[in-house]
Design a protein around this nucleic acid. Structure first.
Lengths: 368, 368
DNA sequence: CATTTTGCTGACAACGTTGTCCAGATGGCG
DNA sequence: CGCCATCTGGACAACGTTGTCAGCAAAATG
C-alpha cells in the first residue's frame, strides 16, 4: 500500500487550528476522504471557481490556455466532480431505480439488462433492489429510492397497494410498473398477456388429449399468478372440462412446496392429473425435477421460457414471454415520461408465444 | 389521473414574480417537481428548521407535542427527506457500486443478490452496471460511480489496468475486486481457484481414459480464462500428455464462435478430441447444444455449475464455484474496510468443487 | 424565593456544485 | 485615437440538509 499514489494535497483548504478551541465551528474531518473540490482546483490553477466548473462541464467561454491550466490542476489533485452536490443544485439525479423480486432469478436477468441498456443510452445510472416478494420491503426500497430522488422508477410490484406512491408520483417521480399492474392506483404498466398465454398453454394440453390437468402457480397475492390461473380455468371451461379442487395449487415457489403440490395431484388415488401447467419458471424447473424422478411420462407446459428447456428430454413446452422486451419497453416508456410525454397511463400488454418442444404432446396415459 | 392526490402545496416557498424581470435571480422551475422541503414543513408546523430535522431523524430532544405537529405537517405536505442534500452534508452516500460483466448472465444473478443482501444489512443501496467485458465501459462506469461518491465499489474487472482507480482508492473509496484480480494495482480480491478447478476437471477426464482433450475458453484478456487454461495445461502435462495447438480455443463466448471452435476440434481429420473442457458456463451451454446434435457421445466437463445441468442426459459434470459466497465474501470484506479495517489487501481464494454427473465419465470412443 | 440545572428550540453556517450577473480586457470600427 | 461590441473570468447566491451553539423556559435545588 505504501506505493499507492499519495492522497491529494489539501492545499487551499481552510484549516482551523488544531488546538481544540470551541470558538469556531470545527469542520467534520475527512469528508469524502478529504477529496479536493473545485475550490481547491481553482486555487491551484489560479482561476475562479466558475471557470473550473466551465472546464469540467466543457462549457464554452474558456481560453485554451486557461483550460489547460485548469486541467493540469485537476489531474494533479486527482479531482473528480462530486455529483451529489451537482444533483442537489440541478434537481435531476440521472438515475433510475429498478425494484424487482429477486436479482438472482434468471427471468429477471435479461429484463434487468435491458433496463440498464436503455438507462445507459439516456446517461442514467441504475439503482437496483430486490423486494423478495415482500410488500413491506418493496415499499421500503421504493421510498428509499425516492429519497435519493431518482428521476424514475421501474417496479415489479410485490404488494397490491401502491397508494403510498401517490405523493411521489404527484411530485414528479415517473413510475412504470412491469409484469404486474400497480395496486389501487392508475399508472403505466407493461406486462405480458398472462391470461391469454396460460389459456393457450392449457388449450395445448387439452388438444393433446388431456382432460385432467393440474395447475401449480405462485402465491395468489401475485397478479400474474391469478391471471394465469384464470387462463387455466377459462381454457378448461372452453373445453367443457370440470376442475377438481385438488388440481389447483397456488403458493410459494419454494421447491418443497412445489414438490408437495405436484405429488399430491399426480398421486391422487382418485382422478390423478395426466398433465401439469406450471405458472412460472421457478415452478416449472422444480416440476421438471419431480417428473424426472417418475416412471410414467406426464405432460407439462410451463409459463416462462428458460435456458436449456429445449435440451431436456423431452423438451419442455413453454409459454414464452420476452423479458428483455418487457424491460426495454418499460424503460422506453419511463424515459418518454421523463422527457415530458403526458397523457393517460398506458397499459402495454405483450403477447406471449407458445413454444412446443414435446413435453406438451405426451398423451395422457389413460387416454380414451 | 384526475383523482390522484393533489400536488403538495407550495406554501411557504418564495415565488419570484412572473414578469420576467432580470433584477433578481430567478429560481430554476420545478426543482424535484417542487417538492416540499424541511423549510416548508417547519413553516407549516410553526417550528424551526432544525426541529424538523430532529423529528425526521428521530433524534432525541423533541417534545411529543412538537413532534406530533411536525409529523402532521410532513404527512400533509407529503414531505420526504432529500437524501442528495443529506449526502452532501454528511459525506457518506450509503450506497455501493457493483460493476459486473453482464447483468443477464445467470452466473452473476446469485452474486448480485448476495451483494445486495449484505448491502441491505448495512443500510446501503446498490448501484449496478454491466461492463459488457469492455474495459473502457468498465472505467466509465466505475468513474461515474466514484463521481456519485459511492462509499465502496465491487468490481468484476473487464480491463487489465486499474491504475485509473488509484486516486479514488487513495481518496477513500473502498474497492474489492471479484472473480479476477485487479490489473496493475494491489487491491482486495475475492476469487475462485480457477487454476485448481480446471486442473481437477481436466484430470477427471484424463482419469476416465481421455488422452485428446479440447479446451474452449473465454478471451485471453480475461484472467480466469488464462488461469483455467493453465490448469488444463498443467493437468495434461501431469499426465504426460501432449497438447495439439488446435485443441485449444480462446475467444469470445458468442455461440457462433464457440460452435465453430467445438466443431473444429471434434471434426479434425487428424486426432480429433474425445473430450472437451469448457471454460465457463456460457461456453458450456453452447457446447452442450453442439454435442446434443451429434451421434457419438463426447465427454464434457465445464467450469461453473448451471441450473438443470443435472437433468440433461447425460448430466453435465462441472467444476462448481459458489457465486453467492463469492459475492457475500466480497461485500463483507468491503464493509469491513468501510468500518475501518486496515491492513494489506487480502486475496481470498475460494475452493471449487467437482460435481460429477456423468458427462465426464463417457469413455473415449477410440480408447485403448 | 433565588439560582442553577436541564431540556427544547431555532439561528446560522457549512457541504460542493451551478446559474446569474457584472467587471475587465480585448479587438474592431468610426 | 476613442468608443462600443464582444468575449473571458470571477463573485455570489442558491440547492436542502445537518452540526454547532446560544437562548430561553421550566424544573430542580439550596
Amino acid at each position: 500500500m505504501a506505493d499507492t499514489a499519495p492522497p491529494p494535497s489539501a492545499a487551499g483548504r481552510s484549516q482551523s487550528s488544531d488546538a481544540g478551541k470551541h470558538f469556531r465551528p470545527v469542520p467534520p474531518q475527512r469528508r469524502y476522504g478529504n477529496r479536493p473540490t473545485m475550490k481547491d482546483v481553482a486555487a491551484r490553477a489560479g482561476v475562479g471557481l466558475k471557470t473550473v466548473s466551465r472546464v469540467v462541464n466543457a462549457e464554452p467561454g474558456v481560453t485554451p490556455d486557461t483550460e489547460r491550466r485548469v486541467k493540469e490542476a485537476i489531474d494533479a489533485l486527482g479531482f473528480r466532480r462530486n455529483d451529489s452536490a451537482r444533483v442537489l443544485r440541478k434537481g435531476r439525479t440521472a438515475s433510475i431505480g429498478l425494484v424487482l423480486e429477486d436479482l438472482a432469478d434468471p427471468f429477471y436477468g435479461p429484463l434487468n439488462r435491458a433496463v440498464e441498456e436503455v438507462a445507459r443510452a439516456h446517461g442514467a445510472l441504475l439503482i437496483n433492489g430486490s423486494s423478495a416478494e415482500d410488500p413491506d420491503r418493496e415499499q421500503e426500497l421504493v421510498l428509499a429510492l425516492c429519497a435519493r430522488r431518482v428521476d424514475g422508477l421501474i417496479v415489479i410490484p410485490a404488494g397490491d397497494d401502491h397508494r403510498y406512491l401517490e405523493p411521489e408520483m404527484a411530485a414528479g417521480v415517473a413510475t412504470v410498473f412491469v409484469d404486474r399492474p400497480a395496486g389501487r392506483i392508475d399508472a403505466d404498466v407493461v406486462r405480458s398477456d398472462s391470461f391469454g398465454g396460460a389459456r393457450a398453454g392449457v388449450a395445448h394440453l387439452i388438444a393433446h388429449g388431456h382432460r385432467r390437468i393440474g395447475f401449480i402457480g405462485d402465491q395468489p397475492r401475485i397478479h400474474t399468478a391469478t391471471e394465469r390461473l384464470r387462463g387455466y380455468h377459462v381454457a378448461m371451461a372452453d373445453a367443457g372440462l370440470a376442475v377438481a379442487p385438488e388440481w389447483v395449487a397456488l403458493g410459494s415457489t419454494r421447491p418443497e412446496r412445489v414438490r408437495a403440490a405436484a405429488r399430491t395431484m399426480l398421486d391422487a388415488p382418485h382422478e390423478p392429473v395426466t398433465a401439469v401447467f406450471t405458472g412460472n419458471n421457478r415452478v416449472t424447473v422444480t416440476v421438471v425435477r419431480v417428473l424426472a424422478e417418475r416412471e410414467r411420462p406426464v405432460a407439462l407446459v410451463g409459463f416462462d421460457d428458460f435456458e436449456l428447456a429445449d435440451l431436456l428430454v423431452p423438451g419442455v413446452t413453454v409459454v414464452a414471454q420476452d423479458a428483455a422486451t418487457l424491460g426495454r419497453t418499460a424503460a422506453d416508456l419511463l424515459f418518454s415520461r421523463l422527457d415530458g410525454a403526458g397523457g393517460a397511463p398506458s397499459h402495454v400488454v405483450l403477447e406471449t408465444r407458445l413454444v412446443a418442444r414435446g413435453s406438451g404432446e405426451i398423451p395422457p396415459w389413460d387416454a380414451g
